[in-house]
Design a binder for these strands. Structure first.
Length: 555
RNA sequence: GACCCCAUCGUCUAGUCUGGUCUAGGACUCCACCCUUUCAAGGUGGCAACACGGGUUCGAAUCCCGUUGGGGUCGCCA
């Protein structure tokens, strides 16, 4: 659990993260003791973690009120392998684990499964942690690196060997490949023949002592292996379809199923929440738990996320990492809300939910067994909903860097006009679905030239002479207007002037909108003028008049 | 191919365990209307589904069997 911690050299265990919370800022100090390098990384996190801590306390209080049955405290883990970025499927698995931990007042352990050293990179580990942090997912322990518990894995394999639950297998890669090929040509599923099963232990030891290359295989007993899955219900596998599987490679490295089982046992994981694609690994792992005389955890297999073509969501669908959604300007609370609704529902009609509400409502039982298609449109809608619930100032804080990198304004300029900027954001956010939309819509409110959008020109400046006439009236109105903050008065005065000059007030406002913003989309025209200020409005009208004049000349 | 999982509007889903209250509810998208200086937002309404076939039952979206369809897994990857 996070909290103010003492940071001493002794508290920096290899591969551990320490968290110090002060004010609203969380600083994590990590010793990334990985096979690649050992270094200290100090990372500042946003305030999202502080928010989630708040949630946790909230939930815990309600738990103490006696709503939850007395049972072993929940301990879950998220165990990504750093061979790629954090994709949406992994993100949702992490989210479900987190929601379950926070809902039940349990703990979330983060474990990096880096046993495939060839494909694991430190960059990916960092990317995954960043993604989790952005989503507001915090963890109570870790990250642990699986490669560091290699000794435990090996010891477990030796235990199995000693108990005769496993045996040495001297089959070569080539032999196995031939077996597999033969099985395929016979149109059968491949299971290891068990060729080395019957080698007497004494003989096997002899060969091992001689240094003959061998793997350690688990001796799958006959019978059936079953469990009650928290999402799928009773699930059963016939052990004949499993086949003796390798537990320790010939180079002494543990294989996934062994490593996971030993780690989950050692970390006392009570609930394993992971993707559906692990269902077929589950019987193997249960067999290992049993052979290791460990308590079998509860399993919850979450259905996969599919692309629009109903295939497993992949890069081909343009579904990049979580970071892509972050860059596109989605809000973490909207993103997690959306992900939570993919395969889970609160059971009532609620859809727009805060993280606190998600935590409160979450349960494993309400996860559906059916895989879900990732629908970006719904994500966009949800993002708009969350955006509209935020205050202008809060939105301003989030988009400020985007204005700066887009070169629209400098940090200093924005700081000087902080209140104005917050009000501007409040104005444009109902029209925006992402933070990028916000930038586009707010751009005309800053000085400098604007481009006239062809569709706006076609619709509201179709008759150039008429447009020029309308803008002429607008110019004389603006000229005499002194109260730019009096929205109602402005409208009354403009309408009166239109009446007097017998021009359509509606047409004028539309033509004016194009002159001011270059688009046909903007907040109310008086709000727009108020936010721009008189000098910019005058400047824009003059520019438009000039443009229209040139157009008329040319025609 | 074998094994496993899944099957309600185009999509996300409620309803399935504990059959009747379901002429199947909500949401996204789309369409229409209202509001309106534009675009959104908001409001109102509309289009749209129980995969198929058997059974059980007075009664099935719900229980059982089969078919079909989709997905996942079948590595000294994780």
């Amino acid at each position: 659990m996070s909290g103010v911690g003492q940071l001493t050299p002794n508290s920096l265990h290899r591969g551990s993260w320490r968290r110090l919370t002060c004010h609203n800022m969380t600083i994590r100090i990590a010793v990334l003791a990985s096979p690649w390098s050992a270094r200290i990384a100090i990372r500042k996190s946003s305030s999202t973690n502080a928010i989630s801590c708040h949630h946790r306390r909230r939930v815990k209080r309600s738990d103490n009120a006696g709503h939850r049955p007395m049972s072993a405290p929940v301990r879950v883990r998220f165990a990504p392998s750093p061979t790629g970025f954090l994709h949406v499927g992994g993100a949702r698995t992490a989210l479900f684990n987190w929601l379950w931990a926070r809902h039940s007042g349990g703990e979330l352990v983060l474990r990096i499964e880096d046993t495939d050293l060839e494909r694991s990179t430190e960059e990916m580990t960092t990317a995954i942690l960043d993604g989790l942090e952005w989503m507001g997912i915090d963890w109570d322990e870790g990250p642990h690196f699986q490669s560091e518990s290699r000794d435990n894995h090996r010891a477990a394999a030796l235990d199995l060997l000693e108990a005769d639950a496993a045996y040495a297998c001297f089959c070569t890669v080539e032999e196995l490949a031939a077996e597999r090929k033969a099985a395929i040509s016979r149109k059968e599923s491949y299971v290891y023949s068990g060729k080395c099963r019957a080698i007497p232990p004494a003989r096997a030891n002899e060969r091992r002592d001689k240094g003959e290359p061998h793997t350690i295989r688990f001796r799958v007993p006959s019978g059936q292996t079953s469990w009650v899955d928290a999402v799928h219900g009773p699930t059963r596998f016939d052990n004949r379809t499993i086949g003796d599987f390798i537990v320790l490679r010939s180079d002494g490295a543990p294989v996934y199923n062994l490593a996971v089982t030993v780690d989950d046992r050692d970390m006392q994981i009570t609930d394993v929440i992971r993707g559906d694609d692990h269902i077929s690994n589950t019987p193997k792992q249960i067999l290992l738990y049993q052979a290791l005389r460990a308590t079998v955890p509860r399993f919850a297999h979450v259905p996969l996320i599919l692309g629009p073509d109903k295939r497993k969501l992949s890069k081909r669908h343009g579904a990049l990492g979580v970071s892509a959604y972050q860059e596109q300007g989605y809000l973490p609370q909207a993103f997690t809300n959306f992900l939570a609704l993919l395969g889970w529902s609160p059971g009532d009609d609620r859809e727009v939910m805060s993280q606190a509400e998600l935590i409160e409502a979450f349960s494993l039982e309400r996860i559906t067994g059916k895989s879900a298609v990732f629908d970006v449109q719904k994500l966009e809608w949800l993002n708009g909903q969350h955006l509209s619930m935020m205050s202008g100032l809060a939105v301003a804080d989030l988009v400020r860097p985007r204005f700066i990198t887009a070169g629209i304004a400098t940090e200093i300029e924005l700081a000087e006009r902080a209140i104005w900027f917050g009000e501007l954001m409040a104005m444009v956010k109902t029209r925006s679905r992402t933070l990028d939309d916000l930038v586009v819509q707010a751009r005309p409110f800053f000085g400098g030239a604007i481009e006239y959008q062809p569709d706006a020109v076609a619709k509201f400046w179709k008759d150039r002479k008429m447009a020029r006439e309308l803008l002429g009236v607008a110019a004389s109105y603006v000229d005499g207007e002194t109260a730019f903050d009096d929205l109602e008065g402005m409208e009354a005065r403009l309408r009166a002037l239109c009446e007097e000059r017998s021009v359509s007030a509606g047409k004028l406002m539309q033509a004016l909108r194009v002159a001011l913003t270059g688009t046909r989309v903007s907040p109310g025209i008086f709000e727009t003028m108020a936010a721009m200020g008189k000098s910019l409005v005058v400047e824009r009208i003059e520019a438009a008049l000039g443009y229209l004049g040139r157009e008329i000349e040319a025609a």
